[in-house]
Design a binder for these strands. Structure first.
Lengths: 186, 186, 186, 186
DNA sequence: GATGAATGAGGATTCATTCAT
DNA sequence: TATGAATGAATCCTCATTCAT
């Protein structure tokens, strides 16, 4: 039972990532999950509901962040570290995130499922804490905004080599660039 | 004749913006255009084709850029000016651009219809020219990338007041922030 | 379950016979089968597929032939008997066969669904066996061809009284005529 | 004007032969005739009407027969000559005749457009005359029927080499076979 | 708990034909 | 006479969802 439910969720996530919400059919998901189509309705009652469940699960699984710990620690490489962490995650879940952003833009994600908002709010809260700890007088919002932009542009354009596969020095170069940009306004 | 065609295009753009490609139905477009559904097919043969026509038209109408002229002129406020221009356009066509980015992410836009690429490539070419004129040794790609990020984050998050409605000083503050960020790496 | 499937097949055959493939609509078939149109698609996926299924079934049900048994037996009234058998079948399934021939001419039947070919090949093989058994040196093809002609002309032209309703002597007269014709070339 | 009309008829015949009545569209015919679709309606008012016109024309153009002259002449090779004539015509207009027979079977041809009937009736009348002249006491109908069967079987099955391309001796062999068959019942 | 069977609603597209010029 | 423009009516087919077992 947990079994079938998991199969469905796994299949659903694959299909949704590949085709997006509208293009995915419950038929295809059921087939990929090797389950009868009705079973899926038994457990999730609605395609929309299945989608939301899947999104929630994905967000939980992939986007845990260390941002608050970093802010607490008071590291002076704060921006560098969260950028590194985020770029790593994004490059590893490229398709998923593309879908999340796309669905967000289409208005299919609301509240705590709206990926860009979740990211943004997380960043903002973390940065705010960081600024407080470091006695920096600056608007956390605009920095969160800017970082989100950096991240999203990395979703829109696929690089030959994804970030997480880059050599350490290459990563560093990128991080330096972004950090320099961000710090310029402090 | 041009008349009906225009009605259809106008209606199509509205509907596509409101609902995206998949959710839009030719029926609804026809109704909004006050035209028989067939007429739409006579003129555009396919929903997909209508969509592409509409997108092309939109790109032509709204996204002419002064970037090359600016690069030629050799203004030292180059980044500031193109950012201003772009933010103006974006804030005025928010819904349209949301749709364009969304469809791009879903893979429904290719080649010269792929909005983010078009923007990015335009920026890159302009920046390259600018750098050459100013004898700046820097990678235009990374700056184009960064600006695209800035722009997209402005698409993702709706502000209370859209950019184009802001007071001059407020605009200037925003532009200063971004420009400082960008110039920090020169 | 078998129930609905059978209803559909039965209805489909009726409609196809009455109107031919192109003129028949899945809607009408569904209605005649007292089934939702979708159900038909669930079971047969395609109108074409339903058509082929129905044709196959019809061929199996109505056109089993005794020709090989007759050839084996070595009866000297071989031609007479198969002609009788065939004319019986044809006159009893006149509408069906008209449709089959018509669709064949339109190129909508291929391979083992192509009624005229099936008939011809069956005849040819049977006659060949017959000739071998009887040590007759003649081309089975031309006789099969000729018999097919006889049969088809009985499809094209409706008689007042169908063959199967004729009195024994009348049948005999017809058979004699055809047999004389055929045997003249032996 | 005559010009356009002719273009349309020519195009129509091509398309109808290639696709049959139902599968042909007035659009395609108009395109092939290099004429506006409406023009076709101007001149023929209806697809059905165009079809009938075209059929009539075709029957007139291709199926003039010498049968009555032959009957009058009182040749003793009567059957042979009309068979030769007919097989020649059929093999030269194979596609057209396939279409005619197919449409006849579908009930789309009535009265003097019904090709098989036309052929049959022509044969019957000619044979009757022949029998009278030759003082033969036999039913012309059954012979006409039989010849029609021969002809139709030549429509159903395409030979590698069409009749009209065969060498004289080969034609003769075929004619001898058929004639023998027919005469056996005299 | 799981599923085979069935469906209402809708969607893109095609076709013969008419209108107005 | 010829035609560009427009359309009502259908057609095949798909999808999310429910029913009965």
């Amino acid at each position: 039972m947990r079994d079938k439910t998991d199969q469905i969720i796994k299949a659903a996530i694959n299909v949704f990532i590949k085709k997006g919400f509208l293009q995915s059919t419950t038929q295809e998901i059921a087939k990929e999950a090797d389950v009868a189509e009705v079973t899926l309705y038994r457990k999730f009652s609605t395609k929309q509901n299945l989608f939301e469940t899947v999104i929630k699960k994905s967000l939980e699984n992939h986007f845990k962040t260390r941002i608050f710990k970093l802010a607490e620690e008071g590291t002076d490489r704060f921006f560098e570290e969260i950028l590194d962490e985020r770029l790593e995650v994004i490059s590893k879940n490229h398709q998923l995130i593309k879908m999340l952003v796309s669905e967000s833009l289409m208005g299919n994600l609301t509240g705590d499922l709206d990926f860009p908002s979740v990211i943004y709010n997380g960043l903002k809260a973390g940065i705010q804490l960081h600024f407080e700890k470091q006695n920096i007088a600056a608007d956390p919002g605009i920095f969160a905004h800017q970082i989100t932009g950096i991240l999203v542009s990395n979703v829109l354009f696929v690089k030959e080599t994804p970030y997480y596969k880059l050599a350490k020095e290459e990563k560093q170069k990128i991080l330096d660039h972004y950090t320099t940009s961000l710090m310029a306004n402090l």
